[in-house]
Structure formats: C-alpha cells, structure tokens
C-alpha cells in the first residue's frame, strides 16, 4: 500500500483485545451479553448474518481434515478497531473516525447517511447495516440499557469495545479524584470480555506494560486477522494450533502452495 493511504495516529492508550482461541468453546455468552449491553434488537427468525444487526459473532473454524483427524475451533469476531482502518477514511460524512484517545473507531448513528461505503471497505464484515427499524417484543424494551442509543433503520453500526464502559470508568475515576487517563486494568472491560466464562477474551491497553494484553499480544502464538492487508487490528488472537494461526491470514495459504 502506498504510504499516503495510511493514516497514522499516535495515541497514549491503545485499547486492545487478545482472544485466546484455544480457550473459546463457542458457548455464545459473549454474543448474548453484547446484544443486551448494546441494545441490539432480538429477531425471532434464525440468525441471518446478511441482514441481522450483530456486533460480535463467532465463526467456527475447521482444519478441513477428514474424520478422525478433524479439529475445530471457535473465533469470536468483534470490530478489529484497526490501527489503520479501511472504513474511516472512506466515509463521506465523517460518521466514522479514529480520532479519539484509545484508538476505538467511532461510529456516529445520527451522522451516518447509510451509504454503506464503509461496509464495502471492511474486510472483516464487522459493520452491519440496519435493514429494519429495531423492534423489541412488548415489555422487553424495558431491558434497554442507557449505554447506547437505539439505531433507526438506514444507518451502519458496529462494535465499539463497549466504549460507554470507558466513559463510565472515567467518571468513576474522576469521582474518586483519580486520573481518568490512568485506569486500572479491571476498570474498563467490554461486556464480552467480562462475561467470558473461560477467560478467553482479554482486554486492556496494548501500550501499557502493566496490562496483560501488552504481554499476550507479543506472544509467539499471537496473530491478527489479515495482517497482510495493513489494517493493523487492535484485536489479537492466540492459538497454539498451527492450523488456526494459518487461517488468520491468506499469506500462509500462499506459502503453503509454494512449499507444496
């Protein structure tokens, strides 16, 4: 990629996630917690990735070997909060940006005009369009959270790393008279990472050596999805299984072909 197309930001804090695939059982608790936390409406129909709003989904990976050599793994996929997001620069109306400390890619629903250019730009399918107005069954709308506004049809949305939880953590720090920019590792954790029963999802500041993600992201077993594209995701994955790591990027497929 030509250098001019990269947008470089430097942030003091770089919120990041490290997901240990070898610990993910695909139980779906993160997906459920994400929907509840972020006011993503339920749909009585079976899940349709093409039309249903979703911020976090779990992919099932296969090593493509025959029984009994077969192996399977689960890969939860939030928004990658790319260091060099392919989505933000293309938005014609500045509805999505990567301009805030922490490096979370923002998505502003009342600004979005629904052109879907960002969706075309994102190779992770992290962005979804609201094809329908959101509907909760009668009474269930009482469980709407105050954290995220409901989105009308016609706008794009995506995972925010539960950005509101950072806001809340900063308020709490201010109330305690602490520096809101120096939070405890536990002060700000997205809903998916908080509920994960096996602790597969780690979260923290990738720049802060005191945070576990700082270390995990540098593990020899760490990889990011589609690193070859230059998106520089802030979501890392861990797996000790070679075949899983190879499925993180197309680079390996190419090499495999060369070797064979």
């Amino acid at each position: 990629m030509s250098e001019s197309m990269r947008i470089h930001h430097h942030f003091e804090i770089r919120w990041g996630m490290v997901i240990d695939i070898d610990k993910c059982t695909g139980c779906g608790a993160c997906v459920v917690a994400c929907q509840a936390e972020n006011n993503i409406p339920p749909n009585p129909d079976p899940f349709d990735r093409m039309r249903d709003p979703h911020w976090l989904i779990v992919y099932k990976l296969s090593n493509h070997k025959k029984f009994p050599e077969h192996d399977t793994a689960y890969l939860p996929r939030p928004c990658m909060q790319c260091g060099n997001p392919s989505c933000a620069s293309v938005c014609p109306v500045i509805a999505t940006t990567k301009d805030e400390e922490g490096g979370i890619v923002s998505q502003i629903y009342p600004r979005c005009i629904g052109c879907r250019y960002c969706m075309a730009a994102c190779p992770y399918h992290s962005r979804v369009f609201n094809w329908f107005d959101p509907v909760w069954p009668e009474g269930m709308d009482k469980t709407l959270t105050p954290f995220v506004s409901t989105r009308p049809r016609g706008v794009v949305e995506k995972c925010t790393f539960c950005h509101h939880r950072w806001q809340i953590a900063k308020e709490e720090a201010r109330k305690r008279g602490e520096n809101p920019m120096h939070l405890d590792e536990q002060a700000y954790i997205p809903a998916c990472a908080e509920v994960c029963p096996t602790g597969a999802i780690h979260f923290g500041d990738l720049h802060n050596p005191e945070h576990i993600v700082h270390k995990l992201a540098r593990s020899p077993y760490a990889f990011r999805i589609l690193e070859n594209l230059g998106t520089e995701p802030q979501v890392y994955y861990l797996s000790r299984r070679d075949w899983v790591r190879k499925q993180g990027d197309n680079h390996f497929r190419q090499e495999e072909k060369k070797n064979s």
Partner: peptide, 14 residues
Amino acid sequence: PPFGLKAHLEEELS
C-alpha cells in the same frame, strides 16, 4: 432465549 438466537451459527439453524 431471545438473545440466544443470534449466538447460533447460521449453519446450525436456518
């Protein structure tokens, strides 16, 4: 559960 549906992979239930 209502929110469990989206936790199902598409291949599991269509």
